[in-house]
Nucleic acid binder design. Structure first.
Lengths: 177, 177
DNA sequence: GGCAGGTGCTTAACATGTTAAGTTTATCCG
DNA sequence: CGGATAAACTTAACATGTTAAGCACCTGCC
């Protein structure tokens, strides 16, 4: 594969020049990229600790969300832990099999599932929390508590400013959906 | 002991209190969550447009990265597009099959792959770029150009402050790695 | 030259993201 | 009451994230 085929590098220069004419901002200045990089920098700090305890980032989010309430319906949990339904379904299946959560059906509406963290789940959290908080404290110290609070505020404002904002621009007239 | 033995409807408060004894910050104030939510709010604006053109977010990142240079080695591209090697490998295989990129092997080092965007790839980008830029402009207007610049700066600073910062805290003494 | 170790990429395996379709149960309404 | 519609998951299918192995090639050293 990828035969060398006497590769002169002709035709490539023209293509590169053409590319630069695309009316696009510098890639490195892209907001989604900046958010992704920042988040990854933060998560890189937490992942090893979670991994040592046999948890993924999403599983940890679910346990944290459940630890803050007595119980929660699945849809509500999806909103709280910021996970899509299908992901949540799979993870709940796994967490239930590991007996970290418990599950029942709502009496008033048999469609609804109600989930709660188990004693085992709480115990696991107790093991993870100290390390997690220590890491958070270290990050806060490094970046600055005030700056961190300001960043959080700006992130919230960004989210709010885009809430219910649909740029279904449809530059393509054939796009029905 | 997650659930109180009584389990009446008023047991909710007690269980919640128990949970709150875990020394953890409010879930909603978590920095990773704030970054995730903000990024999702932004990407939700772009995804429909990309989808209409048959591209995923990551594929689009790769094309953008390649459009800015004449060609790129795979490892360099992984760094630029902020993708892990395995993801990049799979996506490049697909993009090559769709003839949106071209690929060859470096003469000086047969291990290295060299990738470049194809004419077809550039053409596709030309179709996506206007919509993408329009969305970006709309977001900028909504959030405020100055505020956006400030946010980008703070995100960059966060990333920089965590660069090479290893909190391998190891609250678990058995954790060798 | 040839081998030990490192590098660059790919493959594998499992978990999640994302959209669409399917299933079961509720609810609306004639 | 009963069919149509909606709601709450769940399953399916495909793409990516993440870590560990694997493979081919390169480099330093004897």
């Amino acid at each position: 594969m990828a035969k060398k085929s006497s590769g002169r590098s002709d035709g490539k220069d023209a293509a590169a020049e053409q590319a630069h004419r695309l009316p696009m901002r510098e890639f490195s200045r892209s907001l989604p990229m900046a958010l992704l990089r920042a988040r990854e920098a933060v998560m890189r700090q937490f992942r090893p600790s979670l991994r040592r305890h046999g948890l993924t980032e999403q599983q940890w989010r679910i346990l944290r969300a459940l630890a803050a309430v007595e119980e929660s319906e699945v849809t509500e949990l999806a909103r709280t832990a910021f996970l899509l339904g299908p992901s949540l379904s799979r993870i709940l299946r796994d967490l239930e099999a590991r007996r970290l959560i418990e599950r029942r059906t709502a009496e008033s509406d048999l469609r609804r599932g109600v989930v709660s963290i188990s004693a085992k789940g709480l115990k696991l959290m107790e093991g993870v929390a100290p390390s997690s908080e220590a890491i958070y404290a270290a990050i806060t110290k490094r970046y600055g508590a005030r700056k961190l609070a300001e960043l959080q505020e700006m992130l919230g404002a960004l989210e709010a400013s885009l809430d219910g904002f649909e740029t279904d621009d449809a530059d393509d007239p054939h796009a029905e959906q």
